[in-house]
């Protein structure tokens, strides 16, 4: 497996009235070529901010204070703005959660689809751009694409808007797509369509995809490898099967135990919620950030730092007590 993006020690902070909030805290991961890499966590865990930090799409007050993200030999976080603009949108594209908000309501779909292609000069003429736009719309499953180029976003449903946004992301044939909760705002049958479209396209085009989600179901259905985030930090990275069958962090374990599962016989098992709630990131707990909610926590968990350590092939965990985790029931 060939790495395409190497993120090291990424740290992003946001000043608030109450103090400095560390939204992304010393995050490191490697994205491999042609894989779907999941980033899963609850709200406020820093998964979206990680993506936004990489593409410098942060809120104006937020600062990436540390780290590197090496793509094709250059550090994305240190590229001068002009050079960076050659990468963002062209080499690395992003898909956002709220497609309706991403599209400009007063411009025709055709113009929005061709804008990036023309700006990045991936096509020579507007006519060529339009031809490619039609082809893209067909690829993402929008019927009668020639006619729809003239339409405005309000003439599309939520699911169709998300297809459009995917088409725009693909328009410059990027190497990497960062998809931030691309199906969260959609109904379940539409989510299923969009997820399968995204997986199919990723397969067909061999693009590397970072899929940010809060839904363990989406992870299980689409990703090859997964990073689990909690309170701004990555606590575990593993291949999907290992993560679901032998999780090595109590938080991952807790997440799996509290997701209700559909049972074919309609029988249900009681849920085991994680007690408490996620910490305040302005004043996070010392030591392991999960210790106030952790069933395994002991004195040593309350102090110091907990870097990711190898616990299996392609499997790292930040928990020093992972060996005490029994088999999954």
């Amino acid at each position: 497996m060939e790495p395409i993006l190497e993120v090291r020690n990424l740290t992003t902070q946001i000043p608030t009235r109450r103090g400095l909030l560390t939204a992304v805290d010393d995050v490191s991961f490697t994205l491999h070529k042609g894989e779907i890499f999941g980033v899963v966590g609850e709200s406020g865990s820093g998964k979206s901010m990680t993506c936004r930090s990489l593409l410098r799409l942060l809120p104006s007050s937020a600062r990436t204070v540390q780290g590197s993200a090496v793509y094709r030999g250059s550090d994305l976080l240190r590229l001068p703005p002009k050079a960076f603009n050659q990468v963002r949108g062209r080499e690395i594209a992003m898909i956002f959660q709220d497609a309706m908000a991403v599209l400009n309501p007063v411009h025709r779909i055709g113009d929005q689809l061709t804008e990036a292609m023309l700006a990045h000069r991936v096509v020579a003429t507007p006519a060529e751009a339009r031809a490619r736009a039609v082809e893209l719309l067909r690829k993402v499953g929008i019927p009668a694409p020639e006619r729809r180029l003239q339409d405005y976003p309000h003439q599309f449903s939520g699911g169709m808007c998300q297809r459009l946004v995917i088409a725009i992301a693909l328009s410059c044939q990027p190497q990497i797509i960062l998809a931030d909760e691309p199906t969260t705002a959609l109904d379940v049958t539409i989510q299923d369509q969009i997820l399968k479209l995204l997986i199919g396209l990723q397969h067909e085009l061999g693009v590397s995809l970072v899929l940010v989600t809060h839904d363990m179901g989406v992870v299980a259905q689409s990703c090859q490898r997964v990073a689990v985030m909690y309170a701004g930090q990555i606590v575990e990275i593993a291949d999907t099967v290992s993560l679901f069958t032998a999780p090595k962090h109590p938080y991952t374990r807790g997440l799996l135990a509290c997701v209700p599962q559909l049972a074919a016989d309609g029988e249900v098992l009681p849920l085991a919620p994680i007690p408490g709630s996620p910490p305040d990131l302005v004043h996070p707990p010392a030591g392991c950030r999960f210790h106030p909610r952790c069933p395994l926590a002991s004195e040593e968990c309350r102090h110091g730092t907990f870097p990711l350590q190898q616990v299996g092939q392609q499997h790292v965990s930040a928990c020093i007590k992972h060996e005490e985790l029994g088999p999954l029931s």
């Binding site: 399968k196 997986i199 299980a220 259905q221």
Partner: peptide, 24 residues
């Protein structure tokens, strides 16, 4: 039936490439 098939299940051994329900 479509709703049941469309819901993504937290089970990595249970996959389908088929879309559960087409259209909107």
């Amino acid at each position: 039936q479509g709703l049941l098939l469309a819901a993504p299940q937290p089970d990595p051994f249970h996959h389908s490439t088929r879309v559960a329900l087409e259209g909107e």
